[in-house]
Amino acid sequence: MEPGLGHRLEALGIKPGQQVKVLRRGWWSGPIHLRVGMTELMLRRVDAARVVVLAGDPSPVNP
């Protein structure tokens, strides 16, 4: 991962162990709309692909 991106993602709340909820995907493989903690983000799929996500458990995302 490019060094800047890791820091940026962490500052925006995407850090190891954090639950992430995907709200929607943009048309024509556009960016994805995420909710992380109390923050909503858009992230390009290429950049999102560099983040390892484990399949979430289906219980409601908290918060």
Binding site: E2, L43, R44, V46
Partner: peptide, 11 residues
Amino acid sequence: SEEALVLELPP
């Protein structure tokens, strides 16, 4: 551009 696009979508 080497910039990854990560933008906040504020309420």
